[in-house]
Design a protein around this nucleic acid. Sequence first.
RNA 1: GCGAGCAUAGCUCAGUUGGUUAGAGCGCCUGACUGUGGAUCAGGAGGUCGCGGGUUCAAGCCCCGCUGCUCGCCCCA
Length: 423
Amino acid sequence: MINRVRGTQDILPARFTDKTDAQIECWNLVEQTARDAFRLCGFEEIRTPIIERTELFERGIGTETDVNKEMYTFEDRDGERVSLRPEQTASVVRACIEHGMFNQPGLAKLFYIGPQFRRERPQKGRYRQFGQIGVEVLGQSDDPAIEAEVIEMLDWYLKQLRITGTELLVNSIGDENCRPAYIERLKEAIRQRLPQLCGSCNQRYETNPLRVLDCKIESCQPYLNELPVITDSLCEPCRAHFQSFTAMLDQRGIAYTLAPRLVRGLDYYTRTAFEIIGSQLGAQNTIVGGGRYDGLSQMLGGPPAKGFGFAFGIERMIMSLPDDAARSLKQVPDVFVAYIGERARKHSFELARRLREAGISAVVDLEGRKLKKSLAVANSLAARYALIIGDSEIDSSSYVLRDMTTGEQRNLSESDLIATLRN
RNA sequence: GCGAGCAUAGCUCAGUUGGUUAGAGCGCCUGACUGUGGAUCAGGAGGUCGCGGGUUCAAGCCCCGCUGCUCGCCCCA
């Protein structure tokens, strides 16, 4: 017995599993709804390789972080270091640079859907291979209208999925002009409180002071509230940008909460950062994270370009879905064709082909079962109708169509049959 | 990287202070019903009790090691 590798999942038809984030119906719902919602706003799909040069991710993330330890990295036969993508923003920006997409007029408004890989300890809603959907807007403009539009689109998407009870948190984390000075002020303030703060806060004081701000430890909370917030330290352009952004959310009637302690860990993030949190999952309650990353293109060796985007994990989105979300999506055949005898069997295959040509999904018994067994299979597949064909049906060119819900049966000619099955 | 829990049929689980042939429900197969599913009834298949070692007259049960899974912590691009 060879099992799947740790932290990966098989996505099965719902009738084979109760685990919603392993049901193909849920995945299709989340993915298809995204494609539809994003297309309405003029976004175009992009697919990038799941394998990239390790350097691509190291540039943006830095080599010494333990993010690196969580990458699947290996040496290719020719000695090149490659990694399974741990995120996709860098890949999308790389593709834009590589194909000169910034040279087209207007913005590149892109979305992607696909697997990503992080070698973490698996736990609830967290896998080593996980699905992610993301949106990126790249180009020369950093107009806050881009941010408001993207968030409105995301809001619409969540509404389409009937996910409610979410909260939008927004913040500005400044840029290279105002953030360094703020970080110094923050470190100074943290230094005063180091003895009172928890162990990981003490560690983050050294490695990533901004992250102290979103420590979840209860005993740290009173001290965190005393720390200076970045919103008070923004330079004038950043302050104006953020004000304009929130004003646009107001105009669009999108509710939000100012979250001055919402931060991002990496250097290329600038200005607007946001998250959408849900009530479903306790401490791990972030459903969507996003923000502006104006520094990334240049960091990857491309032209100066502004960027804004978000991403979310598909498994976690599925867990936020209402319970009945995927029920209507179960794929059931329109008709199951059952036959009696060898002559009818041949006839069934031909008839099934004509039904399929008419756009009707038809499943024929391939096992030579008795009528009774065929109907039992039709029942377990939840087929809407069963078609019963025997010698007398062939001779009279009139087939028995059985409604599997009511048990009602009608005799129909082939053309009436097709008309009925098409609804 | 750290911690906790779990591992018995396809699935969900029971299995007494260690006792002889390891059970149930659901599902699956066959039949009652030679051309009618779901309901009922009768029968059947399916298990190296995760793996390896130890204790014992005797281990699914106790002990040790390993592996796997799950859930936390850390981290979260």
